[in-house]
């Protein structure tokens, strides 16, 4: 068996999904950690987003992280492409469907809707890139006025860009919807990834199941609190 045969088999395709999925989970930890720096505004009235801007400046100006970003994009592209391709292949395996659907008897709706949830996340991701990643890397629109950081560096005011972006209700609503989709996508995906990699020991499966639920609630909740906190005026 060569690598191509291994990765193109039905299990191989799922292994690719699980490895890229877990890689993206690790990215979520970094992303939520860096962005949660905005909440320093709650504890330090003189912060005005300085802690977050310093973190964003570090992420944007460190060469190692810029190189890692290429890996991140590869992870996204492979996960999205393989996910959509698998969804289409799996759907084509039953040309004539049932008159009476089995529905939720035996499986959870979100476990059967990973393609749909993933597609919502992809659309959200495109909007998210348009709002933050493209301005910070290329167009600099909304980032015209630089900010002097407490460490002496001059940088983009990403905190201000967040504040301006999340001043509109529809954007806050779209972001919260994105976070809910992420929560359900993770609720199935987190545990399923470990099962696909062959974790069958019931002791560890229980652990991964609980860890998955915790991760799926906590991380999207912190993300969702960001646009809400700006809009409600809790920070900024």
């Amino acid at each position: 068996m060569n690598w191509s045969q291994l990765l193109r088999s039905s299990i191989g395709k799922k292994i690719v999904m699980s490895i890229t999925g877990l890689f993206l989970v690790s990215f979520l930890v970094v992303h939520v950690g860096v962005n949660a720096c905005i909440f320093n505004d709650l504890f330090d009235t003189n912060d005005n987003g300085d802690m977050f801007n310093r973190a964003a400046d570090f992420m944007g100006s460190t060469v190692v992280i810029r190189i890692m970003e290429i890996g991140l994009f590869l992870g996204f592209i492979i996960h999205i492409y393989q996910g959509l391709a698998l969804e289409l292949q799996n759907r084509s395996k039953r040309k004539k469907g049932y008159d009476v659907q089995m529905g939720n008897r035996g499986s959870k709706w979100y476990s059967r809707s990973m393609g749909l949830l993933g597609t919502i996340l992809l659309l959200f991701l495109i909007l998210h890139w348009w709002h933050f990643w493209i301005p910070s890397r290329f167009t600099h629109s909304g980032l015209e006025v630089p900010v002097l950081l407490s460490n002496g560096r001059i940088s983009h005011d990403m905190f201000l860009l967040m504040k301006v972006t999340f001043s509109e209700w529809w954007i806050v609503l779209v972001y919260v919807t994105g976070c809910i989709s992420l929560a359900y996508h993770l609720l199935h995906g987190f545990e399923s990834a470990f099962r696909t990699l062959g974790l069958h020991n019931s002791r560890y499966l229980v652990m991964v199941h609980k860890l998955g639920i915790g991760f799926s609630i906590i991380v999207p909740l912190i993300f969702a609190l960001m646009p809400v906190s700006f809009k409600m005026g809790w920070i900024g």
Binding site: S10, L86, Q89, N90, K93, R105, S111, S192, R195
Partner: peptide, 16 residues
């Protein structure tokens, strides 16, 4: 795979 079955997505409907 050759017989045309789909890939597993761990939904658990089979077990049920």
């Amino acid at each position: 795979d050759k017989e045309g079955f789909g890939a597993c997505t761990n939904t658990g409907a089979c077990e049920a």
